[in-house]
Nucleic acid binder design. Structure first.
Lengths: 228, 228
DNA sequence: GTCAACCATCTCGTATACAAAAAGGATGGA
DNA sequence: TCCATCCTTTTTGTATACGAGATGGTTGAC
């Protein structure tokens, strides 16, 4: 075989363990397995009608994504993500989005900007329809578009990964009074900055747009006194 | 069990598969397994005197760190990291280090700055001794210190991870004429900026300091016509 | 001679088996 | 009554077994 043939693994042939990993991730994030809970190989294997092998492989993926801790010879435990850690992740997310915005302002083509405008229009429709869940989805698409327009695939990947990791904590803020409208207004400014090639503006606006999510999360915490 | 007890997994009890993963990683990066090469479960199992199970677990880790591609039902192949991807990673590294520098300038304590000065002094000694390998090590310590002084643990982790990923490509530049001296001079400026709380300066200097590595890498490529 | 289909072989993904280590409880002594 | 030690039990980590899917070569038809 020639060493320079890149393997195509775009095939959707996901193995059983992959599916289980995704499912477990969802279940952890939605709270079926609370922080500190131990994930039992045997019972999960029974539940999913598979042997321990796929379960263990799923555990490995979860451990690497930081969702669980793997204590050798003792088991797998749902990681206790502290509020501090989440705030730290929001801070990094703000910076990464700021970078994406800056690069996007410098690199986005006219057609790319048009795509961004359409994504934003979809957000506006969701807002006007009062559909918070839909807004949440369209908002995600909007941001992923900015990641892509950074023109840096690696950056896009990393941004998407962190975005995904913060998903449950962003979702908590959906029903905060007035947040959607404010978010929408910020979007307008961001699109304008990227469209006009205002790199500094896009950077600043995006950083603020995301940083406010971290702050909202903090407020939510102290109001509800939830231990995350 | 109380849900709020955080598991301590600082134990050095690394399983066999962890060790193998580290070893394989090293062997891939040092070129024993060239890009595109297929990693055979059976022969590796035999070589390491273990069964296929630990080998497969090691493969999973490598796949998630992006070092290999896992083609379902077909095998595991060393990933062909293209020059473009590496340049992209250097660009992200430059931005992340810039962020670390900015935050460090805002947050570093006097003792932290002193530690940074000492790390820099170690770099200088290595330079004066003409020991490129030692400089490389001390330089790594210097940068890790800046990551830590960002005051954001998550950021520190991510920066460390990318730093590690880029290690082999940074190492290629070690023997470029004059680079060590130039690097050292840049360090001085960075320390000064952080020490004086000059956030913008630290950000700008660190971005340039890392970006130049990407450029050097590019030059090296075109000179040597190496396919990475 | 070329192309397609079929079959043998190999490898992967999963199931099961076994050994070692850790956790928990019981027993004995202080 | 409390604590330490030993043993049992549970559970992990690894080895092995087996079925399914992919690969490559061969054979046959056109």
């Amino acid at each position: 075989m020639e060493p320079d043939t890149q393997i195509d693994l775009s095939a959707g042939a996901r193995s059983r363990s992959d599916q289980i990993a995704g499912l477990l991730e969802e279940q952890i994030l939605t709270g079926r397995f609370p922080p500190g809970a131990r994930l039992d190989e045997a019972s999960l294997a029974e539940e999913h009608r598979v042997s321990r092998t796929p379960i263990r492989e799923a555990f490995q993926r979860l451990a690497q994504s930081g969702l669980v801790d793997h204590a050798p010879r003792r088991g797998v435990f749902v990681r206790q993500t502290t509020a501090v850690e989440i705030m730290e992740m929001f801070e990094v997310m703000a910076e990464i989005e700021a970078i994406c915005g800056r690069l996007a302002a410098l690199r986005a083509t006219e057609t790319a900007v048009e795509a961004l405008r359409q994504a934003n229009a979809a957000c506006r429709r969701a807002l006007e329809a009062g559909d918070a869940d839909l807004y949440y989805e369209e908002n995600g698409a909007f941001h992923r578009l900015i990641y892509a327009q950074s023109g840096n695939r690696y950056l896009e990947q990393e941004a998407t990964r962190l975005h995904r990791r913060l998903k449950p904590y962003r979702r908590m803020q959906l029903h905060l009074r007035g947040r959607l409208k404010q978010s929408m207004a910020e979007h307008e400014g961001i699109v304008a900055a990227i469209a006009s090639g205002d790199a500094q503006g896009a950077e600043r606006l995006l950083r603020a747009h995301v940083a406010v999510q971290g702050e909202k999360f903090h407020h939510l915490l102290s109001q509800l006194r939830i231990d995350v």
